[in-house]
């Protein structure tokens, strides 16, 4: 297992991407990412591995068997374990292929004060329930802090960009309504993720008003640099 110059190790970086660290330790890792491109790249790889898992099992459907009334027998277990990797068609392959993070030179500002009224919300998977959580959170936050100079940005990458795509997302009306209702709410789609879709032969048509032009990583790092507060979907679910 690798230990980096900053004293951080691989176990800690895994815990970071899984949201298992306390805020103080998270800050230590983020500072490490600022100072060491190798750490930054490794964190990026770990996040990609999580994306792979989610994509690989995103569209699994089980047979709709009736709920057992009493203890059932292992009807078909006698068939043993057949190594079956039959692929089920899924909605998106996301950024599995051609996903790169080695060229990130952006910086995060260590010790930067976070402004709780300026929030960047990050979603990186195509689960509609997750996106709904993001929208609910954004709407509630904006409603409760109307006159406090709030700014909210929803940044989507990987499978998350599908939730901002016309014809691929069930949220077009809601995103449009929210955008019309709140001028301080913006939606940003990751440039790399859009490029990956094009490589797969998909021409992504984004909702009106959705911005692009930077990668999610670059945009989020810039916002952190500007003092914004970062919230990932995983954390929102606990709020």
């Amino acid at each position: 297992m690798k230990t980096y110059d900053t004293g951080l190790d691989d176990l800690t970086l895994n815990a970071f991407v899984d949201g298992q660290l306390d805020p103080e330790m998270e800050r230590v890792v983020m500072t490490g990412m600022q100072n060491d491109p190798e750490i930054r790249e490794h964190v990026c790889k770990l996040r990609r591995a999580k994306d792979w898992m989610r994509t690989g099992f995103a569209d699994v459907r089980s047979d709709d068997r009736p709920l057992p009334k009493s203890k059932a027998q292992f009807g078909r277990l006698g068939t043993g374990i057949a190594a079956s990797f039959m692929a089920i068609a899924i909605g998106t392959g996301g950024a599995i292929l051609g996903y790169t993070c080695a060229d990130r030179e952006s910086v995060m500002v260590a010790g930067q004060q976070q402004d709780p009224m300026r929030v960047v919300l990050h979603i990186d998977d195509s689960d509609p329930a997750h996106f709904e959580t993001v929208l609910d959170y954004a709407e509630k936050f904006l409603e409760e802090n109307r006159s406090r100079g709030t700014q909210v940005e929803v940044v989507a990458n990987s499978g998350g960009v599908n939730l901002l795509r016309s014809g691929a997302s069930p949220f077009e009306d809601r995103v449009r309504n929210l955008s019309e209702q709140y001028s301080n709410l913006h939606f940003i789609a990751c440039m790399n993720s859009l490029r990956n879709l094009r490589r797969q032969g998909i021409d992504p048509v984004m909702f009106k008003g959705v911005h692009s032009g930077a990668t999610a990583v670059d945009h989020i790092v810039q916002r952190l640099h500007d003092g914004w507060t970062y919230q990932k979907i995983d954390n929102l679910e606990d709020i």
Partner: peptide
């Protein structure tokens, strides 16, 4: 399914789990 890699087996494991859960 991620554990066993077999759809039929996964289905049976889940059915057994639900049965025991109930």
């Amino acid at each position: 399914l991620a554990w066993c890699g077999d759809r039929m087996l996964a289905d049976d494991l889940v059915q057994e789990t639900l049965s025991l859960g109930l």
